[in-house]
Nucleic acid binder design. Structure first.
Lengths: 208, 208
DNA sequence: AGCCAAGAGCGACAGGTGTCGCGTTAAGAT
DNA sequence: ATCTTAACGCGACACCTGTCGCTCTTGGCT
């Protein structure tokens, strides 16, 4: 099975344990920066961290575990959605953040995507990460409604957010297009126009 | 393309060579169907195909090579974009195809995405595949303009197509959401509304 | 029918991956 | 200060991955 969850009555998170965790996570970042997602290997991390392989295997199990822990450690919890004063500005800023996170090296987001195809835990961490992000961003839409930028009718915030951000992923990850500094704004504007046209408001409950 | 191009003056594409290729590609499909992208391994394919490992390595080099050849063999070349009589219908049909290709097992599209993070050739094959597809689909937009569904002003067909299809990838691959039969139509309608609002027409050449 | 080289089979090999048992160190509690 | 034991270090191991040199088979040609 996995590692002993919280079953063991007493554990030792401090001192050496914490130091080794820091060394290993630093090594993960370094390996990722040097060779990209495909260069992230258990042995490489252990060697760079100056830690025995067995230790890495025991605590993190596989590459997916390393990435999950790295993301936890990065403390994405205190992340806040942008607040620029307009829906289009917020979505543009959000898209810029996303584009940056996909293009920067090392890119945790890309590494996590790569790992998600091989390790279940990485896949679950990925869906959780993005689901949380979209949930946090729903406030952007609420604020836009309050400002009168969108009709007061109920708007599917999540669908709007996905429509605005998905093209960025699509271009960078799937199509591997060259970096386009205007893409975040264009995608945001597109989503806003669609929203203003009622694309994300509930339809009459006739068809479906 | 992949293997020694046309350098060698004489080659032997027939007989045993062709038979082994068929065996190997069948094995790839079977492995993919059984265990998904992460189960696709050179040794597994060789064993299932009843072929020596070295043969697979020599001819296909790596898992990416297998997938690239598989796609070539699938003859996606004679693929035709949908033609339902309306832009929204076309985009919906396109999205349904895409959704199906991502959900079906074995999913070559997902396997290729997974491999694209590890093998350059797979990445290039993927971008080429989708770039070609989008190029072929630009006719959908042209037909819509001819029908008067879109303003005659120049429309960025590629951007429209990406806006319409990206949410499907996003939901299925990144968010791993449950299968939503309405998603293809909703995403298509969203893109059409945005297009009608002029989201994909060239702006005044002031800002950029 | 016979030739010959492309291409498949074969086994050996180095290096990487993941697991295990056991001894040692040191975190946390008394 | 002392004790307990969680957690790390270590080396052995079995297995997997990718490559190489060689031999044997056989497709395509004369």
């Amino acid at each position: 099975m996995t590692n002993p969850p919280a079953t063991s009555p007493d554990r030792r998170p401090g001192g050496r344990t914490a130091r080794i965790r820091a060394q290993v996570l630093d090594a993960v970042r370094a390996e990722l920066a040097e060779g990209g997602p495909s260069a992230l290997t258990m042995e490489g991390v252990a060697k760079r961290a100056g830690v025995h392989r067995a230790t890495v295997y025991r605590r993190w199990r596989d590459v997916g575990g390393l990435l999950v822990d790295l993301i936890d450690a990065a403390g994405e919890l205190d992340w806040q959605p942008p607040d620029t004063g307009s829906l289009c500005g917020d979505l543009t800023a959000l898209n810029q953040e996303i584009q940056e996170s996909l293009v920067v090296r090392p890119s945790f987001a890309v590494a996590l995507m790569a790992a998600s195809f091989h390790f279940d835990r990485a896949a679950r961490a990925q869906t959780r990460l993005w689901t949380d992000r979209y949930a946090q961003c729903e406030i952007l839409v609420e604020r836009a409604v309050e400002r009168g930028e969108l009709p007061a009718r109920h708007t599917d915030a999540r669908a709007l957010l996905i429509a605005a951000t998905a093209p960025v992923y699509h271009q960078v990850v799937l199509l591997r297009a060259e970096f386009d500094p205007h893409l975040p704004r264009r995608a945001a504007e597109m989503a806003v126009l669609a929203a203003e046209a009622g694309a994300f408001t509930a339809r009459r409950p006739e068809g479906v």
